[in-house]
Design a protein around this nucleic acid. Structure first.
Lengths: 232, 232
DNA sequence: GTGCCAGAAATGGTCTGATGACTTACGCTT
DNA sequence: AAGCGTAAGTCATCAGACCATTTCTGGCAC
């Protein structure tokens, strides 16, 4: 087995066996090299691999630690790869978002939480009064994110967030011929979702969310040419 | 910005900008070091990071290439991190699987595909006649995997597969007091799913799949102590 | 005794150079 | 034209040195 793979397997085993739980500190690099039988370079490459996956994290001058191993945090790391997926693949991902988010929206509607509806309404008021593409994107994320959070499953929130972030790189809301029509349709969709939540109608909420995201899929399909994601 | 981060950003930018598409080959390491302004160690750590995420892959003696950037392949890389998530988190993930897989099962039922029903029936025949834990796990994966594939979204198939694989590390089907009852309930659940697919009833299929996976969640909750995932 | 500060120790981050291992391409032989 | 061996190209690994950051420790001032 290759050196880096050996180190990778060893590190994973230390976590999987329970020897090191969430937040635990690894031995210093020289000690790990000795224990795993690889050079420092190979060990460090293995550490980077697990770091990219959100499993461990190194702090300069302090040490290397097992992460919290929280599913939401780990899924968020996916954005590093998802942001590079071409449009073809993004459309498949949007189906995942549609299914998960309509589920979460129904769960949010089932909750007896007037404060949530009020907060969502405030977001929509701001969203409907702006035409700035960046602001639209942020408020849209805030709206859907708040609903998913109310849905109660942080993993779903993280996953839908990653996918939504990827879709956001395709600027639907650029000033153009169709801008007004698209914006009006989008605003209507958001209001339909909020109405269903306000009236505590989970089935209507699921339908509204599903339709809203399906509409986004249609817009993206029309945008095929020239995707230019911006990296942070 | 740190050297490795600089290299990471540079590599991602080369892909995101379209300079290098799926399958394209990167320049040799020394050239990349020069271009990105970092040492070879730092470059290699950045490459490993993106490799772990399934974005690029290095082939010894050949070169470093952009991966296919297929969403299903990228999601499959998640198993490296998901397999390390503690039981608490796995339960949240199972809700994701339940929602996605019941959707995919409904889609499979909507298809007019007698050959699928026949194939699934053959799997269940084998599954019902075995009591070996490993074989049960494999046949269960084959059954649900075939259904998800028929659902038509490879991203959903990959995601549910990763989560199912994680759950599989908790051995529900170990010989014990409840083995017979659990096995019988599980078999019944599978048959209910197949019946719904055979009769082309998407709603019933979604319900059956959802109930079946919810049952798994209950069994896992009862298994809290001593999870020992086996790494390959 | 408490709080602060400087220095020392511990630890990860980066760079350099050399060597090994594998793949690919080329040219030679048959 | 096919097969084969060699050479070039490329990634994999190791070793050692030095830098940057964090953390610990001891002593000093109050």
């Amino acid at each position: 087995m290759a050196a880096t793979d050996k180190a990778l397997a060893g590190l994973r085993q230390m976590i999987a066996s329970g020897e090191l739980g969430p937040g635990a500190k690894f031995p210093p690099e020289p000690e790990l090299c000795d224990h795993l039988g690889v050079s420092r370079s190979s060990l460090r490459e293995a550490v980077r691999s697990l770091g990219a996956l959100g499993v461990i994290e190194s702090r300069h001058g302090s040490g290397t630690y097992v992460s919290a191993l929280d599913p939401a945090a780990i899924i968020s790391r996916f954005s590093l790869s998802v942001e590079l997926i071409p449009l073809e693949g993004v459309l498949e991902l949007l189906e995942v978002r549609r299914v998960l988010e309509s589920h979460a929206t129904a769960a949010a509607a089932a909750r007896q939480d007037p404060e949530l509806a009020q907060r969502l309404g405030a977001i929509l008021d701001r969203l409907e009064s702006t035409t700035d593409a960046t602001e639209i994107q942020h408020l849209d994320a805030e709206f859907h994110g708040a609903i998913c959070t109310a849905g109660g499953n942080s993993t779903v929130t993280a996953l839908t967030g990653v996918i939504r972030g990827r879709g956001g790189h395709y600027r639907i809301f650029e000033p153009g011929a169709d801008f007004d029509a698209i914006k009006r349709t989008s605003d209507r969709g958001h209001r339909a979702i909020l109405d269903a939540i306000t009236t505590r109608d989970p089935a209507a909420a699921a339908t509204a969310a599903s339709a809203h995201i399906a509409q986004t899929e249609l817009w993206l399909r029309a945008l095929r040419p020239d995707p230019q994601p911006e990296l942070p």
